[in-house]
Structures are given as C-alpha cells and as structure tokens.
Simulated assay, not measured.
Amino acid sequence: MAAKQPPPLMKKHSQTDLVSRLKTRKILGVGGEDDDGEVHRSKGLAAGFRHHVLRGCHHGIALIMWNALYTAEKAIIRWSLLAEACYFAVQFLVTTVSLVESSRIATGAVLLLVSRALFILISIYYYYQVGRRPKKV
C-alpha cells in the first residue's frame, strides 16, 4: 500500500493578507486611516462599562465603611479611614484635571471640589485621632 501524499500547501497572496489585516485593525478600532482619512484609535471602555466600574467602586468603599462601623479594632478602622481618604483624593484629582483640561469652571464643580477636600480632611483627622494613644488620667 502506498502512503497518501499530503495535499499541497496553499500560499496566501501578500495582498490579501494585508487587506485582511487592515480590515481586522479597522474592526478593532486601532491604528491606520480608513478611506475617509479618519484615524482609528483604541476604543477603550464602553461608556456604560465605566459607570458599572464606578458603581462597583462605590459598593466596595461602602462595604469597607459598613464593616468598620461594627468593629472595635483600631487597625481596621484606621485602614478604612485611610482607604476613604485615598478614594476622595483620587476623585479630587480627577475632577481637578478634567476641569483644567476643559477650561470651564462652574459653581457646582467648585462646590464639588470643596466638599471632596473637606471629606479628605475629615477622614485624615479621624485617621490620626483613632491612632493616638489614650491619655492616662
């Protein structure tokens, strides 16, 4: 019995490879220009997905704060207050950068920045107060 010969390998033409690659990049939204001259960029996160991530962050911080209410350990309370202060600091920085980039400052945005700065100060104050040693009487 004679061994079967494998079918001959088919080579793709480089032109179709290039077109296929460009179509794939266009669908993915990365690199290159299309026929209209528009430059494709990475699409990143969908608009709705960002809101889900933000709600998730809020739930995480809320759970940390809720559990800190029912504990007597200073270390857990301090870490919770520090996490809260960091969260508000990131919000403050992001809001500030977006306001500077848009070069529009509304009264509501300034009020938001002031309230976040106040929350940061309160969280840090309680963080240090919980960590202090009690005075001996």
Rank of each mutant, 00 (worst) to 15 (best):
65 M>T: 08
67 N>S: 12
59 H>W: 14
88 F>K: 08
114 V>L: 14
74 K>A: 11
53 V>C: 03
69 L>K: 14
55 R>W: 05
60 G>I: 06
85 A>G: 03
61 I>A: 10
103 S>V: 05
78 R>T: 12
61 I>Q: 09
69 L>N: 06
94 V>Q: 09
91 Q>R: 10
62 A>W: 01
77 I>Y: 01
69 L>V: 08
92 F>A: 03
69 L>R: 07
74 K>E: 10
81 L>N: 01
75 A>Q: 15
63 L>K: 08
97 V>M: 03
93 L>C: 05
65 M>W: 01
73 E>I: 03
112 L>F: 06
74 K>W: 02
97 V>D: 02
87 Y>E: 07
100 V>D: 04
81 L>K: 11
75 A>R: 15
85 A>Q: 06
102 S>N: 02
61 I>M: 12
112 L>H: 08
46 A>I: 01
62 A>K: 13
95 T>H: 15
55 R>A: 07
82 L>I: 09
55 R>P: 01
92 F>Y: 08
62 A>P: 00
62 A>V: 02
64 I>A: 03
101 E>I: 05
55 R>S: 08
116 R>I: 02
73 E>S: 13
49 F>I: 08
88 F>R: 03
76 I>E: 14
83 A>K: 05
108 G>S: 13
92 F>S: 04
107 T>M: 11
105 I>W: 09
89 A>I: 04
68 A>L: 01
78 R>A: 11
90 V>N: 07
93 L>H: 08
107 T>Y: 10
53 V>M: 10
108 G>L: 13
87 Y>S: 05
93 L>T: 09
91 Q>A: 03
61 I>N: 08
84 E>K: 15
94 V>S: 07
118 L>A: 06
103 S>A: 07
112 L>T: 05
78 R>Q: 15
117 A>M: 04
70 Y>V: 13
76 I>P: 09
103 S>P: 00
71 T>D: 07
49 F>C: 03
103 S>Y: 03
56 G>Y: 00
66 W>T: 11
66 W>R: 12
105 I>M: 12
77 I>H: 07
111 L>V: 08
62 A>L: 10
99 L>C: 10
108 G>M: 13
70 Y>G: 12
83 A>C: 04
86 C>A: 11
69 L>A: 04
116 R>P: 00
112 L>I: 02
55 R>I: 00
104 R>A: 14
64 I>K: 15
47 A>S: 14
81 L>T: 02
100 V>R: 12
101 E>M: 11
71 T>W: 02
100 V>L: 10
76 I>A: 14
47 A>V: 09
65 M>I: 09
116 R>D: 00
95 T>C: 12
58 H>Q: 15
106 A>L: 15
104 R>S: 07
60 G>Y: 06
63 L>R: 09
89 A>E: 14
61 I>G: 01
109 A>F: 05
86 C>Q: 15
104 R>D: 10
83 A>R: 09
92 F>M: 10
58 H>K: 14
69 L>T: 07
106 A>S: 15
82 L>W: 06
71 T>V: 08
85 A>E: 02
96 T>F: 05
48 G>R: 06
107 T>I: 02
76 I>L: 13
78 R>E: 03
96 T>S: 11
114 V>G: 00
